[in-house]
Amino acid sequence: MKRAWHDTVWDVVKYVFLVFSVLCVLFPLYIAVANSLKSDQDYINLGILQFPSHPAWSNYVTAWTGGALGNAFFNTFTIIVLAVIGNVLLGTMVAYVLGRFEFPLKRLVLGAYVFVMFIPTITTQVATFGIVKNLGLFDTRWSMVLLYLGASAVQIFIYLQFIRQIPVSLDEAAMLEGASYFRIYRSVILPLLTPASVTVAILQTIAIYNDLYSPYLYMPSVNLGVVSTALLRFQGPYSAQWNLILAASIIIAIPAVLLYLFLQRYIFAGIVNGAVRE
């Protein structure tokens, strides 16, 4: 009897804690949605916690056009697609070479990736900036794509971890059938690394969608705005119009939330695989 009583108290504590946490997450989001839907009139007259009885959807239209958010989504999407494809191709190629072959300087190549993984990208931007300028990449979308390809080393270790689980006997069977090494990469390794590629694609997409300082540094032109920099530009012209700023913030948040709801399982797996390497 005592144990049952104990369990009930414990259960109550657990649910209270969970509900409290959920409220901490939802309260700021509720405030943002409620105030993004207030007309200028409602914004002045209603309390901050109140939801408007006549949602002003026009705020979303104003934010979308005024902030050139369509263009920002296009730029972000283009950069994500190019960087993800590049990272998957180059990452699997490097992992195939490092995971399957012995060759001189192999340790040096591996060491270079370990080295880069431990240097936070943002700290070296002071020097990278000059290189991007000298290469004529400044203020182009390519600066972003090439930086994302050249400055991320994490994916190599995710791929190396997965490639070890692909039995070498598969390579050997393909060789007996006369397949070239390239063919083995294309027909055996690349397809079997798909789960790792999903992880890499998810981590890369989240990182690029949230990245602020590299587009801010390297793509100052307004027409090259990505979601983060387009949102950042709301601070000037709309600094007092919180309903529009919040509407723009919600617009930027929606695609990520939708993607998350559909791909939840993969995103959780991707984050865990990305953090727990070796």
């Binding site: 270079a112 090439l146 390809l149 050249g150 090494y181």
Partner: peptide, 29 residues
């Protein structure tokens, strides 16, 4: 032969990018 060609061609672009945008900037820094 294949092995040599594959190692060089598969590492060329990734390493060029890694050196240009990560390792070289570090030493410049």
């Amino acid at each position: 032969t294949q092995k040599a060609v594959l190692i060089i061609s598969f590492l060329l672009i990734p390493l060029a990018l890694l050196v240009t945008f990560s390792i070289y900037p570090f030493f410049k820094l």
